[in-house]
Nucleic acid binder design. Structure first.
Lengths: 163, 163
DNA sequence: CACAAAAGGTTGATGCGTCAACTGCGCCTA
DNA sequence: TAGGCGCAGTTGACGCATCAACCTTTTGTG
């Protein structure tokens, strides 16, 4: 069956090599987190944000900005995390609850963060070196900007929240 | 709350910038695919592989190698795609069925491939340029190798299939 | 004041991904 | 030829992600 020349061959090869890498890295890292510490990548992301917040508490909305999750995904996931005792919802202004990291949640992230960081360091930083990692970060920022711009031009102007 | 210096600041910033970019790009692209053509990123991946196969048919196992999916995920997804008429399973050697792309599946991918490629081109290639994309591909290959190596050293030697 | 609109969040339905357990066929070795 | 092993694939249960609909409190606006 025909293989359309969507890109030049070398470009396409590079892109696919990149895609493969990311898939391998992501599944390997998140499996590691799950196996060794019982946390999913999503759990980890939430806990990192909360544990770095000056007060240890954030609104769901802020977490949403930080993680770029949909609000319903956030709500569902926070509910599950609350059930597991990793976070708690506390009512403050009688409207929007604040999300607090519990002691147990704090323990969990303190337990896994060093190993997680070490893994990323080993797999990415040690492989690429600081210099190329920083180039990667810059490239990432540029692409992110392009995506944001594209998102604004393609989404119907009356659709705010998502899309 | 304390922010442990898992990385140097600039390294961490670069890594996070990269993570953010990828999340934005991935959700934007897959939403585009879903909205405009009714295909998920997973559907697309399967159809690309099948449509590029010389005979238009592959064993589930081969698809698994190409996509790096677990076999059960593959099985579930192929079942769903079959129900939607995008692929078919044909019994050949009375043991393992072959997966064939249907006419409808072929139409679907032909319809969306150009737009998808154009989007990636616009967001990634045009932003980075060929040269940096190729560097990215090389970096990807190196990291992928590191991940593979790590996977072999950390997985219990009696666990074959996955992990 | 009354009504509308918006922002932040929740809910339920549905499809997807993962894990563990199982099936069925072929191969090997005794 | 029988028993065991392993590979390719399926199944079911469960947790996660997404979409659309909804609820509640606040903010205009006539």
């Amino acid at each position: 069956m025909a293989n359309e020349p969507w890109f030049r061959d070398d470009e396409q090869k590079a892109w696919r090599s990149y895609l493969l890498m990311w898939k391998l890295l992501e599944t390997h890292v998140s499996r590691h987190l799950q196996r060794e510490f019982g946390l999913s990548a999503s759990d980890f992301e939430i806990l990192v944000n909360l544990s770095e917040a000056p007060t240890g508490r954030m609104r769901a909305f802020e977490l949403g900005e930080a993680t770029q999750w949909e609000k319903s995904r956030m709500s569902h996931h926070l509910t599950r995390m609350e059930k597991r005792g990793l976070i708690a919802k506390v009512a403050c202004d009688a409207r929007y609850p604040e999300i607090v990291i519990t002691d147990q949640g704090m323990e969990a992230i303190k337990a896994c963060a060093p190993a997680h960081a070490a893994l990323i360091r080993e797999l990415v930083l040690d492989t690429l070196g600081t210099e190329r990692l920083i180039e990667l970060g810059e490239a990432g920022a540029e692409v992110a900007t392009a995506v944001e711009k594209h998102r604004q031009t393609t989404c119907p102007p009356d659709v705010r929240g998502e899309c």
